[in-house]
């Protein structure tokens, strides 16, 4: 019997070229990175079951379901608002996050779940010029007063729906954003992220398997 190896593959295996790209020699204006191993479950509340979902979420993730346009941080999992009465349970530590089966159990009857761990591709963008680069891609107003740390949005980049939120600022006080894009679009959109950043200088990194 032949041996079957199930190695996982990042959708950015060709597109993502780690290292320094674009203009300037000094510190890059933009940092782009991609974490390939994520856990992601879409949790959609069943009709009239918001209270049950809140209870289950609190118990399982240690976090309330996020308020509209916000994220809610649990121990391992970040809950990202993704529409009315629904959120994404996102983690970059899939081994320590509750499994899909555990989540199915916790939300049985109160929410409909859809495993999207492979349906979306994570892209993190940060740095002093991150906002300038993002201004070329998203129509969101990312001003501090409008989109502070902890904000989330479902929006579009290049006519493609994305989930988007803002994490805590980095050590230098520059903003950090995360986008989840549809996996099949990720190659194209990654190129757009890079191209939008080149004029500021961009540092690119890949984290996780499959590259």
């Amino acid at each position: 019997m032949p041996d079957f190896v199930w190695s996982s593959q990042s959708p950015l295996k060709k597109a993502l070229v780690p290292g320094r790209h674009g203009a300037g020699k000094a510190a890059p204006g933009v940092s782009l990175s991609h974490v390939s191993d994520i856990a992601l479950v879409q949790v959609m509340t069943r009709r009239g079951r918001n209270a049950d979902v809140a209870k289950a979420a609190k118990k399982l993730f240690g976090a309330e379901p996020p308020a509209a346009l916000k994220i809610s941080s649990g121990k391992v999992v970040t809950l990202v608002w993704s529409g009315p009465d629904q959120f994404l349970a996102f983690s970059e530590l899939p081994q320590t996050a509750p499994s899909v089966e555990q989540q199915e159990q916790a939300f049985a009857g109160s929410a409909s779940l859809s495993n999207q761990s492979d349906g979306r591709c994570q892209i993190r963008i940060s740095g002093p010029n991150a906002r300038d680069a993002l201004a070329k891609m998203t129509s969101l107003d990312l001003h501090d007063t409008v989109f502070p740390v902890g904000s989330a949005a479902t929006t579009s980049i290049d006519h493609t729906a994305v989930n988007f939120w803002r994490e805590a600022d980095d050590a230098s006080g520059n903003p950090v954003y995360v986008a989840l894009v549809f996996t099949s679009f990720s190659d194209t959109l990654w190129h757009l992220f890079v191209e939008s950043s080149l004029e500021y200088g961009v540092e690119v990194a890949a984290i996780g398997a499959g590259h």
């Binding site: 069943r46 859809s114 492979d118 549809f182």
Partner: peptide, 13 residues
Amino acid sequence: LDVQLSSATDQWA
């Protein structure tokens, strides 16, 4: 009707 929809096109090979 109690029904929820989610696109799983990109999730599956």
